[in-house]
Simulated scan of single mutants.
Amino acid sequence: MNVSFSSWFVIALALLAANLPFLNERLFALVPLKGSDAAGGKPLWLRLIEVLVMYLLVGAVAYLLESRAGNTFAQGWEFYAITLFLFVVLAYPGFVWRYLRKRHG
């Protein structure tokens, strides 16, 4: 896998993973929750925890791809802060779809 493809793969994976908690009512899209059929479904705090875990998983995949391509680079806290907020920005479409969309009917 070349570097360009792996970069685009990580971006696509991040976009999917950031929106996944908002697009379903299951925990990590796998585990059904008790009482999630009730009005409101999965609580927001649980969705935010899922977003954080997805960020860590995408980061692990990105680190694995970087290490397979060559040397890995040491990163400071600034890198992780910027990528976390970028991940939150990628989650915005799912948040809008879940909470801000006007439901008709």
Rank of each mutant, 00 (worst) to 15 (best):
V89K: 08
G40K: 08
W45E: 11
Q75H: 13
L46K: 08
R68Q: 09
N71E: 14
L46Y: 07
R98H: 11
L23R: 14
A69Y: 06
L46T: 12
L44Y: 10
T83A: 04
P93F: 09
A18Y: 00
A69R: 09
D37K: 12
T72C: 06
W77G: 11
V3H: 08
Y55A: 05
G35L: 09
M54G: 01
R103N: 15
F87T: 00
W8N: 09
D37E: 15
N71D: 12
F9R: 11
L46Q: 13
I82S: 05
A18N: 03
L64P: 02
F28T: 06
E66W: 02
A69H: 10
V96I: 15
F85C: 13
K102F: 15
L13T: 03
W8Q: 09
A60H: 04
L44M: 14
L84K: 04
A60D: 04
Q75C: 06
Y63I: 05
T72G: 13
V96P: 04
N19V: 03
V51A: 01
L27P: 00
Y99N: 14
S67G: 06
M1E: 05
V3M: 07
R101K: 15
P32M: 07
L15V: 14
R26D: 03
Y80G: 02
L44G: 05
Y63T: 12
Y80L: 05
V51G: 00
I82C: 01
G105Q: 14
N24D: 13
M54D: 01
G35C: 10
Y80F: 15
L30K: 06
N71K: 07
L90W: 03
